[in-house]
Simulated scan of single mutants.
Amino acid sequence: MNIGEIARRAGVSRSTVSYALSGKRTVSEATRRRIQDVIDELDYRPNAAARALAEGRTRTIGLVIPPATARLTHMQLDFVASVVEAAARSDLDVLLSPSGGDHERSFERLLSGRRVDGVILMEIRVKDARVDRLLREDLPFVGIGHTAGDHRMSWIDVDYTTLIARCVHHLADLGHRAVALINRSPELVAAGYGPGLRAAEGFAAAVAERGIAGFEYACGDDTAAGRAVVRRIHAEHPEVTAAVTLNEAALPGIQQALEDAGVRVPGGFSITGVAAQRWAEDFRPPLTAADVPAQQMGAQAVELLVERIAAPDAPPRHILLTPPVSLRASTAPAPSLAESTQARVSGSGGSTAPNGR
């Protein structure tokens, strides 16, 4: 239950409910009583953080998304939707603002004008100038993602290092001796994009531990790049029988390229990785993957920000999520060298559960 629902049932505006709760402006006795009756009926009890926000300045939070690509991926859109939905439950508006490149002025206007009570940052680099800028501005903020070794900010993130390593161990357990990592775009990785760098670290550590060959490929966030990277892998390393990826936007192209080459998944080639559940389930066959809980992360980011606004001097909180690898149908035992060519054409299904590493 939130202020918006109380306003609807009482037949008044949200601001009127806010004024009645905070006492910042005079509300007629009849209106106040009508609002109170609804509150009593619904047993509405605003918590301390909500009360602090009711006494704030704008009741608006900023959601900052760097224009890393020409369009947002589905996972990014899931984060945006979850933040907006969670903010609405707290009776907050969301101001969407890009940053990076030609969009720095938008980010600066967001801060210098004090148009918001706090900020949520997405797509964070391991060294991120926006984090330093927000710390200097002394504006409450939270990251979906985190910088390297900076404990001055609150954040929620996915443990890409561990999850990509688990995917490699799963493939190694199935007998694959040469695997590829399909990472995010060269521009993002070069810019220090956190998930991309941490995925590469987890991949390198896991292939070294298992004594198998590993090859990393950067890949743009689109279908064409997905097709191109599969062609490169087959041309440069035909011994590769499986791939791990965190590039969900490239998955349709990866699937198309494998189909065009007559390579059957999972009989001739296995693929796994980290992706939003929607992408994993749309892949054919459905992708064995650690499903990124975007809705949960967006909601928790809003909760963290509300806490920061209410108590800016409280110690920062850090939430690192490690969702399980959901076993689907895109991984299977590696084909032997003798049957590799035939397996890539005919294929066969089946897979086993990842280990608990």
Score class of each variant (00 low, 15 high):
residue 29 E to H: 14
residue 80 V to E: 04
residue 180 A to Y: 09
residue 172 A to Y: 00
residue 10 A to I: 05
residue 224 A to E: 10
residue 6 I to Q: 09
residue 215 F to E: 14
residue 134 L to Q: 07
residue 271 I to S: 08
residue 11 G to C: 08
residue 237 H to A: 11
residue 223 T to S: 12
residue 206 A to T: 02
residue 258 L to D: 07
residue 200 A to C: 09
residue 77 L to C: 11
residue 235 A to K: 12
residue 26 T to R: 14
residue 295 Q to T: 11
residue 99 S to L: 08
residue 207 V to T: 13
residue 246 L to R: 01
residue 257 A to P: 11
residue 356 G to A: 15
residue 8 R to E: 14
residue 351 S to R: 10
residue 138 D to A: 13
residue 175 G to T: 06
residue 202 G to M: 03
residue 222 D to P: 04
residue 173 D to G: 15
residue 49 A to D: 15
residue 182 I to V: 15
residue 145 G to I: 00
residue 205 A to K: 01
residue 131 V to D: 04
residue 192 G to S: 03
residue 181 L to F: 10
residue 195 P to Q: 02
residue 24 K to I: 14
residue 179 V to R: 05
residue 285 P to L: 07
residue 201 E to V: 14
residue 108 E to G: 05
residue 331 T to P: 05
residue 310 A to R: 00
residue 183 N to S: 14
residue 51 R to P: 05
residue 194 G to S: 11
residue 217 Y to E: 10
residue 290 A to V: 05
residue 226 G to M: 09
residue 119 V to L: 06
residue 199 A to H: 03
residue 163 L to Y: 00
residue 134 L to S: 08
residue 111 L to Q: 08
residue 164 I to K: 02
residue 102 D to F: 05
residue 293 P to V: 01
residue 99 S to Q: 12
residue 53 L to H: 01
residue 271 I to N: 08
residue 255 Q to H: 12
residue 182 I to R: 09
residue 220 G to N: 02
residue 248 E to L: 05
residue 24 K to G: 05
residue 22 S to K: 04
residue 141 F to T: 07
residue 32 R to G: 11
residue 38 V to P: 02
residue 310 A to E: 06
residue 180 A to S: 14
residue 214 G to P: 02
residue 156 I to P: 05
residue 265 V to H: 00
residue 338 A to R: 09
residue 20 A to H: 12
residue 242 A to Y: 00
residue 35 I to T: 10
residue 254 I to C: 13
residue 331 T to D: 02
residue 3 I to Y: 07
residue 132 D to G: 09
residue 315 P to V: 03
residue 260 D to E: 09
residue 256 Q to C: 03
